[in-house]
Nucleic acid binder design. Structure first.
Length: 108
DNA sequence: GGGGTGACCCAGT
DNA sequence: TACTGGGCCACCC
């Protein structure tokens, strides 16, 4: 898979995350590992930082439920609107964690 | 080609 | 809960 295609795959997957649900960087990387072969949470984070502006980036959080650094207030506003399960100021991963049943590309 | 960095993750204290 | 160390991969200079 080309780098450009991988970026689009990440963005496409993030767009598939339903309102009120979230995915971790690791989960995104793991989900795309099937179609990409090699991935890592670091790569997903970097892509989100560069191209995340075009997708619901706030639905992608760290493993402990923290939103993107520098955009916490922005993210929390969305969580309140979408009714995302919160826990002590952070996203409740046990309730909000979401995983795609089928991938945006390669699957159907 | 080599070294530093980053919207990460896991394990230990 | 907060802090620290190691692993990981691609990007940038």
């Amino acid at each position: 898979m080309e780098a450009e295609a991988y970026v689009e795959a990440v963005l496409a997957l993030v767009e598939r995350i339903p309102p009120g649900r979230v995915m971790t960087y690791g989960a995104v990387a793991d989900a795309l590992a099937e179609v990409s072969g090699r991935t890592s949470p670091r790569r997903v984070g970097t892509i989100m930082a560069r191209y995340g502006g075009a997708v619901p980036w706030y639905r992608v959080v760290a493993a402990d439920g923290r939103p993107a650094p520098g955009h916490e207030a922005r993210a929390r506003a969305h969580y309140a609107r979408e009714g995302t399960p919160m826990r002590n100021g952070k996203v409740d991963m046990r309730a909000a964690a979401w995983y795609p049943e089928s991938l945006p590309s390669g699957g159907g």
